[in-house]
Design a protein around this nucleic acid. Structure first.
Length: 266
DNA sequence: GGTAATGTTAGACT
DNA sequence: TAGTCTAACATTAC
């Protein structure tokens, strides 16, 4: 789940339910997922404190803790999410994969769920995390001019690989790179140097549109439109949303499982 | 039981 | 140097 729109959603979720509540206990099912600090110190630093604010950098969620200068920094990996719920209640199946849990004085708790354990938790300042330090610009704050310049710095690179590389642009992963390229009608095999100026400008627009629209959809707990590619990843119908006579193709591109329409995307 | 899965990274290779 | 490819991490769902 967690690419920019998903983490944006988790950030709002976190702000809505976990700010300004006294942390009375912290439980951790797998201490190896906490980086930069051992669990005893992690716990000591956070107990009796509260979260004051939260924001997002790329796919990272950053929380400010009242009274200390380090931040709680969460990366969700491939299978992470948050769940705020009454202490001890199992409401969703995935609650079983809670790896870290903040208990608040009000009887509720915030669970960090991480099925495949590929996520990470830090207690440090964002600039101490290499990937954050090297992170490219936020796509929603990027001008067309800056975007075009970024592309010219990587002419030889494959476009899907470029979009997914956090050092170029923050927050885009496998699912949204496929969606953006589908909507921009660009074949994920293309190299940047082979794109026309027009395609590059459309790509810029679609990055903005897809990410903002997806964030809105998640916020309202809606499904993605049928005209999007996304609903078709999870089915085997392989029907192109733009033309039912076109067949979608699945292929490994840039090391990830891509889905695209070879006829619409050129 | 085999396979694929929304991420990142190190190291080998071209 | 720059980009690509593969494996590794770890575990579930179909």
């Amino acid at each position: 789940m967690p690419e920019l729109p998903d983490v944006e959603f988790f950030k709002e979720y976190f702000k809505d339910n976990s700010l300004h509540k006294k942390i009375i206990n912290i439980e951790c099912e797998d201490k190896t997922l906490i980086k930069n600090v051992d669990f005893r110190d992690f716990k000591k630093s956070l107990i009796r404190k509260s979260f004051r604010d939260a924001w997002r950098i790329g796919k990272f969620l950053i929380a400010e803790i009242k009274g200390i200068s380090e931040n709680l920094i969460i990366h969700f990996g491939m299978t992470g999410s948050l769940h705020y719920v009454k202490q001890g209640e199992e409401r969703k199946r995935r609650d079983r994969f809670t790896r870290l849990c903040f208990r608040f004085a009000n009887g509720y708790e915030l669970r960090w769920i991480n099925i495949r354990r590929l996520g990470k938790i830090y207690l440090t300042k964002p600039q101490n995390i290499k990937l954050i330090e090297e992170m490219g610009p936020e796509p929603l704050q990027l001008s067309q001019q800056e975007f075009l310049r970024l592309l010219t710095n990587h002419e030889l690179k494959n476009i899907k690989a470029f979009l997914m590389d956090q050092r170029n642009i923050a927050g885009i992963g496998n699912v949204y790179s496929d969606e953006i390229l589908f909507q921009a009608r660009i074949n994920p095999h293309r190299k940047i140097e082979d794109l026309t100026q027009r395609q590059k400008k459309i790509l810029f627009q679609k990055i903005y549109q897809v990410l903002t629209e997806a964030t809105k959809i998640l916020t309202f707990y809606r499904a993605f439109p049928k005209s999007w590619l996304e609903p078709h990843r999870h089915t085997n119908d392989l029907i192109c949303p733009r033309n039912k006579n076109h067949k979608l193709k699945r292929e490994t591109i840039a090391g990830r499982s891509a889905i695209f329409c070879p006829l619409c995307q050129t």
